[in-house]
Design a protein around this nucleic acid. Sequence first.
DNA 1: TGTAAGTGGTGACCAATGTCACTGTTTTGT
DNA 2: ACAAAACAGTGACATTGGTCACCACTTACA
Lengths: 201, 201
Amino acid sequence: MIKLPNLSIALQEQITNNSALVEIPADTEILREGQYVKVIPLVLEGLVKVFTKYEDKELLLYYIQPNESCIMSFTASLKNEPSKVYAITDENCKLLLLPVDKVAQWIGEFPDLNNLFFQQYNLRYSDLLETINQLLFDKMDKRLLDYLKEKVALTKKNPLKISHRQIASELGTAREVISRVMKKLEQEAKVKQLSTTIELL
Amino acid sequence: MIKLPNLSIALQEQITNNSALVEIPADTEILREGQYVKVIPLVLEGLVKVFTKYEDKELLLYYIQPNESCIMSFTASLKNEPSKVYAITDENCKLLLLPVDKVAQWIGEFPDLNNLFFQQYNLRYSDLLETINQLLFDKMDKRLLDYLKEKVALTKKNPLKISHRQIASELGTAREVISRVMKKLEQEAKVKQLSTTIELL
DNA sequence: TGTAAGTGGTGACCAATGTCACTGTTTTGT
DNA sequence: ACAAAACAGTGACATTGGTCACCACTTACA
C-alpha cells in the first residue's frame, strides 16, 4: 500500500486501489496550458514547477513538493475548465495520479482529504500572493537572490547547476538581465560563479 | 431568516441564528494587515476590495461581490495566522459575520458550504493569477483600461467618480503615471474626462 | 577532432515608468 | 464667499529593465 502521511488508513487503501503510480523524468511537461484535466497529481517524490505563460514570457509561480498536490488541476477539473498554468518536473518524480471523479467522491467521505485540499488551496494562495508581492515591490537583484535561496533550500544543493537562460525564464525576464544582475551579486560577494554553476554565499 | 442562495434551509437557519448582520459604510477598513481573524465575512450587499500592501505602495487584488466571502479570513483563522491582506468596503455594505469555530463545524456537516468554500478558493486563485498576468505581461495603458472596465461592470455606473490618486493606489503606481496614461487614453478616444469623472467609451 | 549548439559577457541603446518640482483648478467646509 | 485641501497637468530627469549586436568560451557529439 502507498504510504500517505496524515491520511486515514481507509483512504490510503482507496487511493492505492484507484490511482496510478508513475515515474516521470526531470524536465518533463506534465500539465499543459489549456489542457482539460482528468487526474489530480499528488507528488510523492521529486519536485514539480508550476508556471504561467504568455507568448514567449513565462514565470515560475511555485513548486509542488512531496506530499503536496496540484490543486489547480482539481479546480480546473471540477469546473471542466482548461488549465491556466502549466507544470514541469524539476527532478525525477514519483507521482500518484488520482482520478478526478473518485477524488470528488472522497472529498465528501473523508474529512482528512477535505482538509488536505483546503490546506493546499491555502498554500497556493499564499504562494501566488508572495509572487505578486515580489513582482510589485522587489527589484531584480532581490528577486534573483530570493530565487536562488529557495532553489538551494528545496534541492539541498549549494553550488547550483543552472544556466542564466533558465533562471531568466523562471523569473520572467531576459538572459542578459540575469547576467548583468548576477555580476552585481558577485561583486557584492553574495554569490560565486564557476563555469555553469552558481554558489550562494 | 437571512436568505442565502444555494445553501440548504438547515444551514441558512444555523447561519441566521449564529451570525451577526452588520451594515458598514463605504471606504471603511474591515480587515487589517497583520490582524488575527475571528469571523468570516460574507458579503450580502455592496462591494469589498482586497489589497496587498508594502510600505506606501499597495495593489488591488480583487473584489468581493454579494454572496461571496473573504476566504482568506477563513484560511488565516484556521491556521491562526495574521492576515496578509487588508480589505476595505467600496460601497455601503451589508455583511454577515460568521464565527470561525461555527464555520469549521458547518464545513463538516454541510456539503453545500464545503462546496461554496472550494468555489471561493478557486475564484481567488484565479483572481490572483489574473493579477500576476497583468503585472507581468501588460503595460500601464492596458492595465488602466481593464481596471476601468471592471469598475464600470461592477458598479454599473458609467461616468465613474474616482480620482487619479485613488486609481494609482489601486494599480500600485503613482498619480502622475495615471494622469499621463489617462491623457493618452483620452487622445485615443477610449475614455472621456469631465472634471473628476471618467467615462469609458 | 572539428563543428555545431549552447552558454555567458558586454556595451549601446530604448522604452516604460517612477520621481520631482511646480503650477493651476476644483471641491469642500465653515 | 473664502480659505484650505484635494486634485490634475506637465516638463525634466533618473532608474530599471528589455533589446540588439556581437564576441568568446565551453560542451556535446558525429
